[in-house]
Design a protein around this nucleic acid. Structure first.
Length: 852
RNA sequence: GCGAAAGUGGCGGAAUUGGCAGACGCGCUGGACUUAGGAUCCAGUGGCCCAAAGCCGUGUGGGUUCGAGUCCCACCUUUCGCACCA
């Protein structure tokens, strides 16, 4: 009887679906476990790279179930977003149809992988029953001043025709399509994530079960800086300009001031300048540049013709405008200390501005400012303040502390903590998203849609032209509305929300997904959350994970949840890469694309970038491996085992079509071994129970349990292969029915990895379904022990032989054996042992010297 | 530039607290069974060497130690993240 995966797999998949084995009652008793894979964007077909994520989650889920946990493992769809709209423009299908069709295909794919989700909890963010609560959440944030409309320079993607959040701009390009992002001054909706900057930063310390890398990335993104705000009086204005610095200890070296071209005082300052028009033209030019261009231009600046007073030295210092000063950070104004800041140094050199040294390695070794070739940027005790009367001689950290005291005492400013994080821009000028529930009334101004009128439903009959401007704005029935406050004719907001709003709270909805009265049931949510194990890609290290942490805190402050961190433990699986790309015509048929730009016979991504020939498996790289063929040939269990065996799951892994065969052979061997043992049972053929097998079995249970819990699936599988080899050896050398117990235990441990074939074999042995009945095996430490131990003996660091003694080894026995061994004897003969190092069970080291 | 992680056979990768480097698998070589083999099974597989003995081997150079892939110092390379954040 040969191993035939396809029949077995469809049989069990059908049974799991019919018996709804993964459905749970959230009010049931038991030790809960909330397992969650980041819900996907329904882009259509899934390839083996996606599979890694879900297969990993399923293996962990099945393991915890076997451990007896009441486990919630839901799945849903991050179903709003641009690709659906682009598909609509390209081929005339409605985004909804396109999305729902993709969801169906992906659900089938999950089933074919043998992944168990509780589909009774399924949610899709494009469903009005879901986005209604998205709108409700927005209104609560608005009430608390956490959602506001503001005008700011924002990132505009000219390809996707919408604004983007800062988090969605990568290297000056749109995260989705790769187009260069432009700056535009627009009035938009923001969420006030900055109000939570300190708590989001502090909370990172509590996330011990998160990868250090993600915590660090979030910390850098939030960018907490400690320093001081200092007022610099400007005589011509009759008021002062406030600057922020992290190095208030260098204030005596501030020889000029630089403002961002966007700074509000600029217009007044340059009013009387002779070259005002030239300066204004320059400012316009700088403001229209993207952040990337602005940086590539190098340092540019203009003198305003005005001065400010350094409050510590009393000197008048020139006020400059500089393209390197960011309007959004700090106060948009800096004091420039060229001697101790590289950027200031470059600016000073370029425009011939004075440089003064105020920090030195020590009091007697003050470098000459004119000889400097770069800024001196000591931040620790290796720098000493000089030429700075109240703090002379103090090391930098103390100098900072002291000078802040002086600043506050003299009323010149105050100690200050500032963040790099900026508010979250959530407006999108696109159709396929949650409508922002606001109304513009000429008389009443901004009026929120009353909660009882939610949801504001997305109309389905809108034209998709692909031209600039939201299709929603052209739908007059949607736009024209009576003001809820005064009843007069008013206009609806036509912007929709960033889809990251949808995904910032979906994990809360999964627990009570059909509740029509409230966003979620707080009591049940507080029982199930935080999520015990969250699994997803590192690409959300900042975006989704930061937003979710922010929204959870906002909900905490509203009293709706009792926790501030939504995800207790996080795991980032690595990407699957693949060399080369497939035959493009074959690929396009699979992807369903018909518009691709070609250059030099190679496909291009978007209109901007060359397709990489090796890298992340993605449609735009033409290198995907679709699972269908693979599953037809080897079965889903083989794909699962190979995917988990390929590399440690957190690491990037290169897909190898040849490597798959190893997993297939392994499962084939397990299968035929099972068949042979069954025959032995039927023929009542049995050998004696071998200690080698028992020992290997218990050692394997011990190893696999620990490795699965640490997500070390690659080595867990290798341990199972070793056990399988041991059982196979016993079988081919006269073993029989006595191997049933170790073999069945192997099946149990293999089940989370290869669920179909193990269920089939398990039932062939006359057992009830594994997933429903079995417990996880427990290792017996007594049976793990070896009867004897081989110990390596080193003499003066060289390996000179081995001795075998009974386990557990006793030092005296070991030494006796060492001296009884002729081979070792020759190295010790005539010498004196000056030291013995004895490592129980591992080795003995002897240090010898010539006897005198 | 700043920050982080990582360098082990032809390849993916193993190796608690320093303790027989290369587990497990792919590939390769040879063999068995076959009309056939891109199926299956068996054996071998870090290098030098016909072989054994032996020697050399974890990016490079030092160091600590009876003993270093593992610890320390310096350097090289790669990957990732941030990137004028004052």
């Amino acid at each position: 009887m040969q191993y035939q995966p396809s029949e077995i797999e469809s049989k069990w998949q059908k049974r799991w679906a019919e018996e709804r084995v993964a459905e749970i009652d959230v009010t049931a008793e038991g030790q809960k476990l909330y397992m969650l894979n980041m819900f996907p964007y329904p882009s259509g077909d899934l390839h083996v790279g996606h599979g890694r994520n879900y297969i990993l989650g399923d293996a962990v889920y099945r393991y915890f179930r076997m451990q007896g946990r009441v486990a919630l493992n839901p799945m849903g769809w991050d179903a709003f977003g641009l690709p659906a709209e682009n598909a609509a423009i390209r081929r005339g299908t409605h985004p909804r149809e396109w999305t729902l069709g993709n969801i169906e295909r992906m659900k089938k794919q999950f089933a074919r992988w043998g992944i168990l989700y509780d589909w009774s909890k399924e949610i899709a963010s494009c469903d009005p029953d879901y986005y209604r609560w998205n709108q409700w959440l927005f209104l609560q944030l608005y009430k608390r001043g956490l959602a506001y409309r503001g005008t700011a320079p924002v990132n505009w993607c000219p390809q996707d025709l919408t604004v983007l959040a800062n988090e969605q701009v990568v290297d000056g390009r749109c995260e989705r399509c790769g187009a260069l992002v432009e700056q535009r001054e627009l009035s938009q909706w923001f969420l006030k994530i900055t109000e939570y900057a300190d708590r989001l930063d502090a909370g990172l310390d509590t996330l011990e079960a998160w990868p250090e890398k993600v915590r660090l990335m979030q910390r850098n993104w939030i960018g907490r800086s400690i320093g001081a705000d200092i007022e610099f009086p400007v005589p011509v204005l009759g008021r002062s300009i406030r600057i922020f610095t992290t190095r208030p200890d260098t204030v005596f070296g501030a020889t000029f001031m630089v403002l961002a071209p966007e700074h509000p005082e600029v217009a007044t300052l340059i009013e009387a300048a002779e070259d005002r028009e030239e300066i204004e033209a320059w400012i316009t030019n700088v403001r229209n540049q993207s952040a990337l261009e602005r940086q590539e231009k190098g340092k540019e600046g203009r003198f305003t013709g005005r001065t400010a007073v350094n409050p510590f030295t009393g000197e008048e210092i020139p006020i400059w405008l500089g393209n390197f000063v960011l309007p959004q950070y700090g106060t948009g104004a800096i004091m420039s200390v060229p001697a101790h800041d590289q950027r200031d140094f470059e600016f000073a050199k370029q425009f011939g501005l004075p440089i003064r040294v105020v920090v030195a390695p020590n009091q007697n070794e003050i470098p000459d400012a004119s000889g400097l070739t770069e800024a001196f940027t000591f931040k620790d005790e290796s720098g000493i303040a000089v030429n700075s009367p109240p703090i002379d001689g103090l090391p930098v950290p103390e100098a900072i502390e002291t000078i802040i005291g002086v600043i506050e005492e003299r009323g010149l400013g105050k100690g200050m903590v500032r963040y790099r994080l900026r508010d979250w821009l959530i407006s999108r000028q696109r159709y396929w998203g949650t409508p922002i529930p606001m109304i513009y009334c000429e008389a009443c101004g901004l009026v929120p849609v009353p909660e009882e009128q939610l949801p504001v439903t997305l109309p389905l009959d809108v034209p998709f032209t692909g031209r600039e401007g939201n299709p929603l704005a052209k739908h007059s029935e949607f736009v024209n509305v009576a003001c809820p406050a005064c009843g007069a004719a008013a206009r609806r907001e036509t912007d929709t929300m960033d889809t990251f709003v949808d995904s910032s709270w979906y994990y809360l909805r999964f627990v009570t997904p059909r509740d029509t009265n409230q966003i979620f049931d707080s009591t049940i949510v507080n029982r199930w959350l935080p999520v015990d194990q969250y699994i997803g890609g590192i690409e959300h290290a900042i975006l989704h994970l930061l937003y979710a942490r922010f929204i959870t805190r906002a909900l905490y402050d509203m009293g709706l949840v009792a926790f501030e961190e939504p995800f207790a433990s996080l795991f980032n699986q690595g990407m699957i890469t693949k060399e080369g790309y497939r035959d493009p015509s074959e690929h396009m048929a699979w992807v369903g694309l018909n518009e691709v730009e070609w250059r030099d016979g190679k496909p291009y991504r978007g209109a901007t970038e060359l397709v990489a020939e090796v890298g992340k498996m993605s449609k735009s790289r033409f290198n995907v491996v679709p699972p269908d063929e693979l599953i037809a040939k080897y079965g889903a269990d083989t794909e699962r085992v190979y995917t988990l065996f390929i590399a440690p799951p957190e690491k990037e892994a290169a897909w190898s079509d040849e490597g798959v065969i190893g997993a297939y052979r392994f499962l084939g061997r397990v299968w035929s071994m099972g068949v042979t043992i069954l025959e032995a049972i039927q023929n009542q053929r049995s050998g004696e129970v071998r200690p080698v097998v028992t020992r290997k079995l218990h050692q394997t249970i011990d190893a696999v349990t620990g490795r699965v819990e640490r997500f070390e699936f690659n080595t867990a599988i290798s341990a199972l292969m070793e056990l399988s080899n041991t059982i196979g050896d016993a079988l081919s050398s006269g073993g029989g029915a006595e191997l049933r117990e170790p073999y069945e235990t192997l099946l149990k441990m293999l089940h989370p990895l290869a669920p179909h074939v193990t269920e089939e074999l398990w039932s062939m042995f006359g057992n009830e379904a594994l997933i429903l009945t079995s417990g996880w095996p427990v290792a017996d430490p007594e049976l793990m022990k070896e009867d004897s131990v081989v110990i390596a003996v080193q003499v003066n660091g060289k390996l000179r032989g081995q001795v075998e003694v009974a386990a557990p080894p006793q030092e005296q026995q070991v030494m006796d054996a060492v001296f009884a061994n002729e081979k070792i004897q020759q190295w010790v003969e005539g010498k004196e042992i000056v030291k013995k190092i004895y490592v129980p069970g591992k080795l003995v080291s002897l240090v010898v010297k010539d006897r005198k």
